[in-house]
């Protein structure tokens, strides 16, 4: 199943090089949720995340001609690199950031007060982790990538990613000890 998906993705990427918009729509559907959730985990603002995601897809479309498909993981590496660059531009353009506690419109619809607080604390705590540990958690739980795919995005082995993940969780536990 997975191999078929990969083959399909590869075919669509190739078709994009000749300007096939339908194939690009396939790529859009294949990756939109992962990119959007990743951006949301960084900005905590749904509207902003939608705008940034839109910009990211325009960037992907422009950058596709210089991309050579080797694996799904490598493709994610390519799109998340574009996503991170776009985020840097976003942060630069935003002079003052809204504090996290003030705005969390990305929570599940059926949330209650305690969920809100827990989620808010979690995001604040994640920001205190090392950059690589933060990335692992975001790509794993918001974008839903496998350890192997995260490894390819971050340029590390699967084992290293697992170690980073473990350490990140242990740290988080420590930070959230009193709250959860």
């Amino acid at each position: 199943m997975r191999t078929e998906n990969q083959q399909e993705l590869e075919n669509h990427i190739k078709a994009c090089l000749t300007g096939e918009l339908e194939s690009f729509r396939y790529i859009f559907d294949y990756t939109k949720e992962r990119i959007f959730q990743y951006i949301l985990s960084r900005t905590s603002n749904r509207e902003d995340s939608l705008d940034i995601t839109q910009e990211i897809f325009v960037d992907i479309w422009k950058a596709l001609p210089r991309f050579k498909y080797r694996s799904v993981g490598q493709f994610y590496g390519f799109i998340f690199l574009i996503a991170r660059r776009r985020l840097i531009k976003y942060y630069r353009s935003r002079q003052s950031q809204v504090a996290l506690s003030e705005q969390h419109d990305d929570l599940p619809a059926e949330r209650d007060e305690s969920d809100f607080n827990n989620y808010s604390d979690l995001l604040t705590s994640i920001k205190r982790l090392r950059k690589k540990h933060q990335e692992v958690l975001r790509l794993r739980y918001w974008s839903g990538l496998s350890y192997q795919e995260i490894g390819q995005v971050l340029g590390a082995t699967e084992t290293t990613v697992k170690v980073w993940h473990y350490r990140a969780i242990q740290k988080l536990k420590k930070f959230l000890k009193d709250k959860i």
Binding site: K32, F36, L40, L50, Q54, F57, P108, I169
Partner: peptide
């Protein structure tokens, strides 16, 4: 709700709605 369970994060994210997806694609 417990956020960390068995060394894993238990979070629920709100996926893109149909309207949001449509808006996003139109923009792109």
């Amino acid at each position: 709700m417990k956020i960390i369970k068995d060394d894993k994060l238990e979070i629920q994210t709100r996926p893109l709605s149909e309207a949001e997806t449509q808006r996003l694609w139109q923009g792109v």
